[in-house]
Simulated scan of single mutants.
Amino acid sequence: MTYCVGLMLERGLVMMSDTRTNAGVDNVSTFGKMFTWEKPGERALVLMTAGNLATTQSVVSILDERTKAHGERDPSLFEVPSMFQAARLVAATLKDVIAAHADAGQRADASFNATLILGGQIKGGAPRLFLIYPEGNFIEAGVDTPFFQIGETKYGRPILVRAYDAAMSFEKAVKVMLVSFDSTLKANLSVGMPFDLQIYETDSLQLGRRIRIDPQAPYFERISTGWGEALKSALDSLPDFEF
């Protein structure tokens, strides 16, 4: 399984993904699920993937090859004029890859499906964040829906819903996301470390800090231990039920 989160802030975007893939309890591997493309001063894009590994790797390879092929008819992420058009390109590529494994068009076997989060900014537009479905359609984050999750979403969602603030700093956003990931990690063995973190600051038009957070990272250990102790303390502070 997978857990990825893309968060929109006033300052920019924060993206985080886990790296575990599994095809059964005895076949666990580590694969990166975060991919980036950048032309400093012009555009910066981040893609996170969940679902069938062969499907997602094929999509990323196609997108990447198009950015390096000059004179080809197929558009690339370095040529599209807006983030909306970038989302359309990624969505169409995903749909085509899935259809190639299907018996008939969109009736693709669910085992080939994948879901993606695309975020970034292209010069002339604002930072944007999209959730792309295997059918080839997508939705965009906004004021009412300022973050997207893909993969094993249910365990980490409550902290995001309660703690999100568009005005918070990158540092606080990372803390909130790590709590969300820790909650998911504790509840589901199919999500695993290390985590990949990417920061993008509005109008910088270049990728910001990229960090890999390992299981032994001192800050993550503090977050994980502290969050567990805080939950226990909060529960103890509540009145007991009376029969």
Rank of each mutant, 00 (worst) to 15 (best):
L178E: 13
Q198D: 08
L129S: 00
L7M: 15
H101L: 00
L129C: 01
A23L: 13
V28F: 10
F147N: 03
A173W: 03
R43P: 02
R20I: 06
R157M: 11
T225P: 00
M8I: 08
S180Y: 06
E221G: 09
V28T: 13
I62W: 02
Y133N: 14
A163E: 14
E140V: 08
A54L: 09
R209Q: 15
D196Q: 15
L118H: 00
P146C: 06
F243N: 13
D196S: 15
L197A: 08
L160G: 01
F170W: 01
D18P: 07
D109P: 01
E72I: 11
E140L: 03
L77N: 02
F147R: 04
K172W: 09
A87L: 06
T19A: 15
L53Y: 04
F195L: 15
R11W: 09
A44Y: 01
S233Y: 02
L238A: 12
D26A: 14
I213G: 07
G192C: 09
E42N: 13
G156D: 03
V176Q: 06
E72M: 10
L53D: 03
Q85G: 02
T55S: 05
E42V: 11
G41C: 06
L13Q: 09
T49H: 05
I223N: 04
L235T: 02
A108M: 05
K232C: 04
A23I: 09
N27G: 00
E221F: 06
E10C: 07
A163K: 10
A91D: 05
A69F: 11
A87P: 00
R107V: 10
L47F: 09
W227V: 02
F35V: 07
G51Q: 03
R43S: 10
R162A: 14
G51D: 05
L77T: 02
A87H: 03
P239S: 10
N137G: 14
R20C: 07
L207R: 07
E42H: 14
I122K: 01
T21V: 15
R212F: 07
S183K: 12
T115N: 08
F241Q: 14
P146M: 05
Q57G: 01
F243Q: 13
A234G: 06
G208K: 04
G156C: 02
G156K: 00
I159S: 08
M1S: 14
T225E: 10
L116W: 01
P75G: 05
L197V: 13
D214F: 15
I223K: 07
D144I: 07
E10T: 09
P158Y: 04
A87F: 05
E42A: 13
T115A: 12
A102F: 00
A99D: 14
G6R: 00
E171F: 04
K39P: 01
D18S: 10
A110G: 07
